[in-house]
Amino acid sequence: MSRLLTTSRLSAYLRQNGRCFYCGASMWLESPEAFAREHGIPIERTGRFRCTAEHLQARSEGGGDEPDNIVAACTFCNHNRHGRKRPMRPEPYKHFVTARLRRRRWHQPWVFENPMLLRSEPLEEEVE
């Protein structure tokens, strides 16, 4: 990961209060062990909450690693977006995730049982 991308990811993580741009879940940057202790979950369940840098405009479409093009997203949301045959644009994908969250059909059931991990929807000030 480039230095600029690392810096942009950290900036987005801080700007978003450590919450995923798409689902609003708490994320970790450096210590899955500390995250597991803080949230009372087994270490094996922390992978989905690792913070990733998400490009709002893909590099292939001319987007760069600048802070205004990067948001922080949990591994689960990032991989699900890009694992689709035709990845959705960021805003429609965010609406898709929010709708699934409302029906408790996005994360595994145990995630919804831990109020520290997830809130029902991302804060408005996190949307740019």
Rank of each mutant, 00 (worst) to 15 (best):
H82K: 04
H82F: 03
H82C: 05
H82G: 11
H82M: 08
H82I: 02
G83H: 00
G83L: 03
G83N: 02
R84G: 04
R84H: 02
R84C: 04
K85W: 00
K85Q: 01
K85R: 09
K85N: 06
K85E: 00
K85G: 01
K85V: 00
R86H: 02
R86D: 00
P87R: 06
M88S: 06
M88F: 01
M88G: 01
M88I: 02
M88W: 00
M88L: 13
M88N: 05
R89N: 04
P90V: 04
P90F: 01
P90L: 06
P90T: 04
E91G: 03
E91S: 05
E91T: 11
E91R: 07
E91Q: 12
E91D: 12
E91I: 10
P92I: 13
P92Y: 06
P92L: 14
P92M: 14
P92E: 13
Y93E: 06
Y93R: 02
Y93K: 09
Y93C: 10
Y93A: 09
K94A: 07
K94H: 09
K94L: 05
K94R: 13
H95A: 15
H95G: 11
H95C: 11
H95L: 14
F96Y: 12
F96V: 04
F96P: 05
F96Q: 06
V97Q: 00
V97H: 00
V97D: 02
V97T: 02
V97Y: 00
V97W: 00
V97E: 01
T98L: 06
T98G: 05
T98W: 01
T98R: 07
T98I: 11
A99K: 11
A99E: 13
A99I: 04
A99L: 09
R100L: 07
R100W: 01
R100M: 03
R100Q: 12
L101R: 10
L101G: 07
L101K: 09
L101E: 07
L101V: 04
L101C: 07
L101N: 06
R102K: 12
R102E: 09
R102F: 04
R102V: 05
R102Q: 01
R102T: 05
R102S: 08
R103V: 04
R103Y: 00
R103K: 06
R103N: 04
R103T: 07
R104V: 06
R104I: 06
R104C: 11
R104F: 06
R104Q: 13
R105L: 03
R105I: 02
R105T: 03
R105K: 08
R105V: 03
R105A: 12
R105N: 07
R105M: 04
W106P: 09
W106K: 09
W106S: 09
W106I: 07
W106A: 10
W106H: 12
H107R: 10
H107G: 08
H107C: 10
H107D: 08
Q108N: 14
Q108W: 01
Q108D: 15
Q108L: 15
P109F: 02
P109K: 11
P109R: 08
W110D: 15
W110G: 13
V111W: 08
V111Y: 13
V111R: 12
V111E: 12
V111A: 14
V111F: 09
V111M: 13
V111C: 13
F112H: 14
F112I: 11
F112M: 08
F112L: 12
E113K: 14
E113P: 06
N114K: 15
N114H: 15
N114D: 15
N114E: 14
N114Q: 15
P115L: 14
P115H: 14
P115K: 15
P115F: 11
P115I: 15
